[in-house]
């Protein structure tokens, strides 16, 4: 029983981290059909900057703020310089964002050095609660809490505010929104920045979670986010949460029982979804 609970908590924590990364991807795709292969690059920049600030200032909150800000900033740069020149051409978008991913990844090595870095959790989140025989690791609970918080805030914004309405309508039909006189490019830029900020947040949270950071983890982790976006349905916000939890749990259980197959099971999930339901489990577009 205690094993089951700790595996579930593991899975939920991983799922939340993937969700933070996938949420941006899915909205960016839904709104402008841009698939951002550089998202993993924003993730590692968030991780490295956040950890650097955290270790310098000894304040984890400052680290998180730094990670989100670098995400927002890089999101702006990516959108302006990389994505905007090739709007509408899918092949060029995929190629160019992958190239930018490469540049971001190598720049990490220039700025922070090529070696792996160890990261330790802040004192307040280190250790665990013990309830009966069950060990609850504090940091994992913290990640789950943050994930739920972000999901709730974003859902409220998406469902209740005017900008959320515009974004949801844009995902459904962007021409219609434009003809109502809304500057969809500006909205898109904002969504892109927020998505990048979430990627940065996910990066710094993940670096403490895994205890080590290295430049290649961006691409590795973003593959999971792609899988989630595909399973959840491109453009579906709640779909990506559902799929992220599914993938996180599958990952955690397989890593415990059949470690060799932990990536394979997610691939298998994605392949099955793509073959039988290419639009994903939750379809948004009308």
């Amino acid at each position: 029983m205690d094993l089951l609970i700790s595996l579930v908590i593991n899975g939920l924590a991983t799922g939340m981290l993937i969700f933070l990364l996938a949420a941006g991807l899915t909205l960016i795709f839904g709104l402008m059909s841009v698939l951002n292969f550089a998202h993993g690059g924003l993730f590692i920049w968030g991780a490295y900057t956040g950890v650097w600030v955290f270790q310098m200032s000894n304040s984890f909150i400052l680290g998180i703020i730094a990670a989100i800000s670098i995400g927002l900033l890089l999101g702006l740069v990516t959108e302006r310089l990389i994505v905007r020149p090739v709007y509408g051409n899918h092949i060029q978008q995929i190629l160019i964002t992958l190239g930018f991913m490469l540049v971001l990844q190598e720049l990490i090595k220039v700025v922070f050095g090529p070696d792996q870095k160890a990261v330790f959790p802040p004192d307040i989140l280190a250790g665990s609660f013990i309830v009966g025989d069950i060990v609850l690791i504090k940091y994992r609970l913290f990640i789950i809490a943050i994930g739920i918080l972000i999901f709730v805030i974003s859902t409220i914004i998406l469902k209740k505010s005017r900008i959320g309405l515009i974004v949801r309508a844009g995902v459904m039909d962007k021409e219609m929104i434009q003809s109502l006189g809304i500057n969809i490019k500006l909205v898109f830029m904002l969504v892109f920045m927020v998505g990048a900020g979430l990627a940065g947040l996910s990066g710094v949270l993940h670096s403490v979670y895994s205890g080590v950071i290295y430049a290649e983890m961006g691409l590795e982790f973003s593959i999971l986010a792609f899988i989630v976006v595909v399973i959840g349905g491109m453009g579906s916000f709640s779909g990506s949460l559902f799929a992220a939890i599914l993938v996180g749990l599958a990952q955690a259980f397989m890593a415990y029982y059949v470690p060799a197959l932990s990536l394979a099971v997610n691939m298998l999930l994605m392949t099955i979804v793509l073959i039988f339901r290419p639009q994903g489990l939750f379809q948004v577009k009308g």
């Binding site: 995929i94 593959i223 899988i227 290419p278």
Partner: peptide, 28 residues
């Protein structure tokens, strides 16, 4: 046969992940 019916994005992602699978398989 399985994947080429998909749109370019999906195909790109799926092949990226498949290659990752081959890498893992070779390592294991």
């Amino acid at each position: 046969v399985l994947t080429l019916r998909l749109k370019s994005h999906f195909y790109a992602m799926l092949t990226l992940a498949l290659a990752g699978l081959f890498l893992v398989a070779a390592e294991k």
